[in-house]
């Protein structure tokens, strides 16, 4: 089956793409930066973090680049002032949602949220921060789940389900009370389904799931499963 090649413009730059590609894929191929947090190549797109929203000429709506397919003669704008302001605010919201203290975080220097704040210039948070005190699950031999740092991107859940094929992880509750859980909200150490593959720690963009005893920046390349190497947003 042949795939149609189409032409479109991203930020005024003329690019070619294949019909089923998403805006994000085409932009990355052409070295146009669109920020993402919940997206990870190889997993189904969630469209939840809303950082990759772009404008498409002719529509008043914004589209998530990670899950919107390109179309012929589409004109995409990825960096308008209002988009940048929205993105800064979204990072502010995430930083203020739970307890994000980079200085004492295992993911310091290796965290995508931290990096996003730098990239977008979110140098302070206008909203009152919420300081959470969720229970940390360190019952697993090698892994720790700290909901206080979780941004609910669900990458861990998706990688566990779609790549490892286990679906140990899932969400409980909804809205602001959502939390990643192990099996039916049991201690991780007691899980029969978990294969300890560590993919969840590898894909976590922040320090919510990590491997015991090591800072994320140390563990990164050597111990990560092949699947995630080079896929994290840089």
């Amino acid at each position: 089956m042949s795939v149609r090649t189409i032409k479109l413009k991203i930020d005024g730059k003329e690019v070619t793409a294949q019909e089923a590609d998403t805006i994000l894929e085409v932009a990355r191929e052409n070295e146009i930066f669109i920020p993402t947090l919940c997206y990870l190549e190889g997993l189904t797109s969630l469209g939840g973090c809303r950082l990759c929203l772009v404008e498409v000429k002719g529509s008043p709506k914004l589209f998530p680049a990670c899950s919107t397919a390109v179309s012929n003669r589409m004109e995409v704008i990825t960096n308008s002032d209002s988009l940048m302001e929205y993105r800064r605010m979204i990072v502010e919201l995430l930083l203020s949602e739970r307890t994000h203290i980079c200085a004492v975080c295992v993911a310091n220097d290796s965290c995508e949220l931290q990096e996003m704040a730098t990239e977008l210039g979110t140098d302070h948070v206008r909203f009152n921060r919420k300081w959470t005190n969720h229970k940390i699950d360190s019952s697993h031999e090698n892994l720790v789940l700290d909901p206080n740092r979780c941004i609910l991107c669900t990458r861990c859940i998706r990688v566990c389900d779609e790549v490892e094929g286990v679906h140990t992880l899932d969400l409980k509750m909804r809205g602001k009370d959502s939390q990643v859980i192990i099996d039916l909200d049991e201690p991780w150490g007691a899980s029969n389904s978990c294969t300890s593959c560590m993919k969840c720690a590898a894909v976590c963009p922040v320090g919510a799931i990590y491997i015991k005893g090591k800072a994320l920046s140390e563990t990164k390349d050597k111990e990560l499963p092949e699947f995630v190497l080079g896929r994290r947003c840089r």
Binding site: L95, T99, I101, C102, A103, V104, D123, H124, V125, R129, W131, T132, N133, N148
Partner: peptide, 19 residues
């Protein structure tokens, strides 16, 4: 000018806020 994470975010000083 707010200098450093404590002045900007609360940082380690604010860790006690969750208690």
């Amino acid at each position: 000018v707010a200098l450093g994470d404590c002045a900007v975010t609360g940082n380690v000083t604010a860790l006690r806020n969750a208690l």
